[in-house]
Simulated assay, not measured.
Amino acid sequence: MKAFVMASSQWKLTDMAEPKAKSDEVVVALKASGINRRDLGLIKRYGDNSAPLIVGSDGAGIVESVGEDVTDFAYGDEVIINPALRWYTNSEAPPAEFDILGMPDHGTFAEKIAISAEQLEKKPAHLSWEEAGSLALPALTGYRALFTKGQLKKGDTLFIPGAGSGVATFLIQFAKNSGARVIVTSRSEEKRQYAKEIGADLAIATDSDWEKELEGETIDLVIDSVGAATFNRSLDVLKKGGRIVVFGATTEDTVELNLRTFFYGQYQLIGSTMGSREELREMLAHMESHNMNPIIDKIYPLGQAQEAFDYLASGNQFGKVVLSINQ
């Protein structure tokens, strides 16, 4: 089968042996796989290892074969992959055995994958293959950050620095579905307009004076994945006693924090990472009840995976970049 792998500090499309299902596994013929920013950084972590590793965390496809102990899925079932490995119930933090699909395990940028049946969920019927194959990691990340950790409720105002990422597009939609006011930032006027089209109430320029632009607003919750470039600016516009949830750092991951300002403001700083299977199922139910669709920016065939990686790395996307497979 064809697969996009990393080996010897390089990306390449190559032939790999077709996977076989163990007794508790299912082989899925993949139809689509979403690319995440996590994938871009894996080659540095993998180093010069010469053994080809299939990357990719998200995917959706059709069950091709099942192991002898599998009872919940059958040939022909349409499924999505849960990339949060071995985290089953909602908890304050992931269990020690938690990992993310796509390293060290083989991932989803391939024509097929063998994976534990515990990591599969039925594909929502209203989603296309590209939508279904791109949602689990970013949507689950956003759902946990917003609801489990951020405790967003109807009437709250949410502030999101950076409007174009896949997670941000899910956050906007989840929050609006829940009756919140949503404010975002972006350097791009085009992205600011897109954000408003999918539900943002206000979109301001990243390089503007946020305190001036947001005068009169009461920010209850900030969800920040940018890092040092926005963290303190976000804190400056957060209401006293407000909550800031951090799930990533696309810029510098070390910030300077004025502790006196922080404790006098009674702010709540909360970390979040991915989510459990329980939250994934809640998230899928939310999407189905609101007939919600992921935002897809561009679709590339598996053979153009490198071009898709380069496009995501450019930061020009609004929403998800997806690989089309076996279509």
Rank of each mutant, 00 (worst) to 15 (best):
S91N: 10
T148S: 14
A110G: 02
A229T: 10
E217L: 04
N36M: 00
V167I: 11
Q268H: 13
E130I: 15
I100E: 01
G155F: 15
I81M: 02
D224V: 05
Y143K: 03
D209Y: 13
L53N: 06
A200K: 03
M292E: 01
L221Q: 03
L101G: 10
N232M: 13
A285G: 09
I113R: 04
I270G: 08
G59V: 00
G67L: 00
L152N: 02
V237Y: 14
A200I: 01
G271D: 12
T218Y: 11
A21M: 00
F159Q: 03
Q306L: 09
K212F: 13
T251A: 11
M287D: 00
N82V: 01
A84V: 02
E25Q: 10
A132I: 06
M287T: 03
I270V: 06
Q306C: 05
L214N: 05
Q306I: 05
R281S: 07
E78C: 04
S314T: 07
A32V: 10
L214F: 14
T148R: 15
T141V: 04
K320Q: 12
S57I: 00
A313P: 08
N49V: 03
M6I: 15
N326F: 04
L259H: 07
R192S: 11
P294I: 07
E18N: 12
G155H: 10
K44G: 05
F309C: 03
A145F: 14
L40S: 01
F109C: 08
I296T: 07
A17T: 14
G227T: 05
A21E: 00
L269M: 12
E217A: 02
T169R: 06
A7F: 02
Y267Q: 08
N82S: 07
A308D: 08
R260Q: 14
R233P: 09
D253M: 04
I204C: 04
G179I: 12
D201T: 03
E18H: 08
Q119K: 01
K320R: 12
I204Y: 08
S225T: 09
A228P: 13
G41D: 15
S65W: 00
F309W: 07
M103L: 14
G271T: 05
S8E: 02
I35Q: 04
R187D: 07
L120G: 00
I172V: 08
T185S: 08
A313Q: 15
G107A: 01
H290Q: 05
K196N: 03
A175Q: 09
R187T: 14
A117F: 11
T273Y: 15
N326P: 03
T14D: 11
P19I: 05
G265F: 11
T157K: 06
I183T: 02
V55C: 05
K240T: 15
G150S: 07
R144K: 15
A145K: 09
E307F: 08
N291H: 12
L284R: 01
N316K: 15
A203V: 04
L302D: 12
Q193Y: 10
Y88G: 04
A139W: 10
D224Y: 07
L221T: 05
T254M: 13
G76P: 10
V70Q: 00
L312R: 01
K149W: 13
V246N: 15
I296H: 03
A136K: 00
